[in-house]
Every structure is written in structure tokens, then in C-alpha cells.
Simulated assay, not measured.
Amino acid sequence: MEKLFTGINIPRMIKIRQRFPRETIADVTSVIKEELSKEEIIGRIKNGDRVAIAVGSRGIANMPCIVREIVMRSKKEELTRLSCRRWGAMAVQQEKDR
């Protein structure tokens, strides 16, 4: 290993820990319902519209609750829900199709 680094100056390194504030929402269901009721969101869709509900799960707490509320609201608005693949699954399928 020392031979690989001969003549290369490697700077001194230190371990750093970074902590981000973690906001929490006590009643996720109520917040989702409130957000979906906002005119800038619900006003963009009309009864009978076709919508795709795509879900990613990286680092999102309460994902089942969030998705359930979105699906329930789409049913209430009589939206046609489309099934769509996740991005990762799409990439795998595209590779298989080649």
C-alpha cells in the first residue's frame, strides 16, 4: 500500500459527524388531508381525470399512511388511477427489453 502512495501528499483527515434537524408531524393523516385540500393542488384536477400515483420510499416516514390518504382522496374525486412502475423497476425492464 505504501508503494502506491509514494510521492503523493495525502492531507490529514478527521472524522466529522453531521446532524440534521428532524421535524416530526404528530398527525400525518390530518396534514396530508389538509395539503391535498389546498386549491393549488386539488384545483388542478377534475373528476374523471386520469392520474398516476408513483411512490418512492427513500427516507420518508409514514409512507403507507401518506399513500393511503392520496389514494382515498383520488377515489373521492372519482379519478382514474393508473398503475405505474417505480423508476428502478422501469430501468430493469428496459434493460430486459433490449
Rank of each mutant, 00 (worst) to 15 (best):
K3L: 10
L4R: 07
L4C: 06
T6S: 09
T6H: 08
T6G: 05
G7N: 11
G7M: 07
N9T: 15
P11T: 12
P11I: 13
P11R: 13
P11W: 07
R12E: 15
R12T: 14
M13R: 11
M13G: 03
M13I: 14
I14N: 07
K15W: 13
I16T: 05
Q18R: 12
F20R: 08
F20W: 09
F20V: 11
P21C: 10
E23C: 09
E23Q: 06
T24K: 10
I25A: 06
D27N: 14
V28K: 02
T29Y: 01
S30E: 14
V31S: 01
V31A: 09
V31W: 01
I32F: 01
K33S: 12
E35V: 15
S37N: 15
K38N: 10
E40W: 13
E40P: 02
I41H: 05
I41P: 01
I42M: 06
I42E: 10
G43W: 10
G43V: 08
R44Q: 14
R44P: 00
I45F: 08
K46M: 09
K46W: 05
N47F: 03
G48Y: 04
G48D: 05
G48K: 04
D49L: 05
D49W: 04
V51W: 04
I53A: 01
A54C: 09
A54V: 13
V55N: 01
V55K: 02
S57Q: 02
G59K: 07
I60P: 00
A61I: 08
A61Q: 08
N62H: 12
M63F: 03
M63N: 03
C65D: 09
C65W: 00
R68M: 08
R68G: 04
E69N: 15
V71M: 08
M72R: 04
K76R: 07
E77W: 04
E77Q: 08
L79E: 00
T80Q: 11
R81I: 15
R81A: 10
R81L: 15
S83K: 07
S83D: 05
C84Q: 03
C84Y: 03
R85I: 09
R86N: 11
G88Q: 08
A89G: 01
A91E: 09
Q93F: 04
Q94N: 12
E95H: 06
K96N: 07
D97Q: 13
R98F: 13
R98K: 06
